[in-house]
């Protein structure tokens, strides 16, 4: 496991390195090396040497080049599609949304935050990094890539997918809803981890909690309920037993 820090200010770089080491020690997060550099080539060269998933802490503004950190992130993505990218910057004039989307960055940390807030944010990122490396199947994203839409959602967050009008689907997680073009059939074929429990519902097997015969619905761990058609009750019961 490896940690990259991209920062041109020597003091800040040193400070950040100390901070990372402190957090890693506190939580006993193992790492092979911490690479602190101001040259993007150094990062690109070292990517093949990494084992497991690396984390990149990138300053966006390097030597008054506004987009440098961002360009480096795009470059990294060419070689490493799954590493965690965190932007560290003072350049608050640039809101983070577009960066997060374009290189699927994990998050964005403001250097000018008070020390303890910053500490907490880095701690969160490094814990996430640790968790990602421990998990058995790290790449659990559910990916939809059709002519009409491109989606990438962590599978464990999905609750269910429902039809919503002709050729329209609603994908529901605990904190978001996505309305997009597609058919349930396509989704079912694309990922075997779903369970068809109703003509117009696909449910995430991992989320099932219990079946309620009176309402003919299956309840999810979050408390949401999904209808079950008579024909498919046995399949749902089976899935629940398998848990």
């Amino acid at each position: 496991m490896s940690i990259f820090i991209f920062e041109d200010d020597v003091f800040q770089a040193q400070h950040l390195k100390n901070l990372v080491e402190e957090i890693c020690e506190k939580h006993q997060i193992p790492f092979d090396f911490i690479e602190v550099t101001r040259k993007e080539e150094r990062i690109i060269e070292k990517i093949p040497l990494t084992t497991y998933i690396p984390i990149y802490l990138l300053d966006i503004e390097i030597k008054s080049e506004e987009y440098k950190g961002f360009q480096v992130a795009q470059e990294i993505r060419k070689y490493d599609p799954s590493g965690l990218i965190v932007f560290v910057t003072t350049h608050s004039e640039f809101a983070p949304i577009s960066y997060q989307y374009m290189v699927s960055a994990l998050t964005f940390i403001d250097k000018s935050l008070p020390y303890h807030e910053r500490y907490e944010l880095f701690e969160k990122c490094l814990l996430r990094y640790d968790e990602r490396n421990r998990a058995d199947s790290p790449a659990d994203d559910f990916i939809v890539n059709t002519e009409y839409t491109s989606l990438r959602i962590p599978f464990h967050s999905i609750e269910y997918i429902q039809t919503d009008g002709p050729h329209r689907l609603a994908l529901v997680t605990e904190e978001r809803v996505i309305y997009f073009y597609g058919t349930l059939k396509e989704m079912e074929m694309a990922d075997g981890r779903f369970l068809r429990c109703h003509q117009s519902f696909l449910v995430n097997k991992e989320k099932l909690s219990f079946y309620e015969p009176k309402q003919r619905a299956v309840f999810l761990k979050s408390g949401a309920s999904v209808p079950v058609s008579r024909r498919l009750v046995s399949k749902v019961r089976q899935a629940l037993k398998g848990e």
Binding site: R168, Y179, Y181
Partner: peptide, 14 residues
């Protein structure tokens, strides 16, 4: 949004 196949609408609340 429903009228246009290539448009996706996402809503998040945290």
């Amino acid at each position: 949004v429903e009228k246009m196949n290539h448009v996706t609408l996402e809503t998040t609340f945290v």
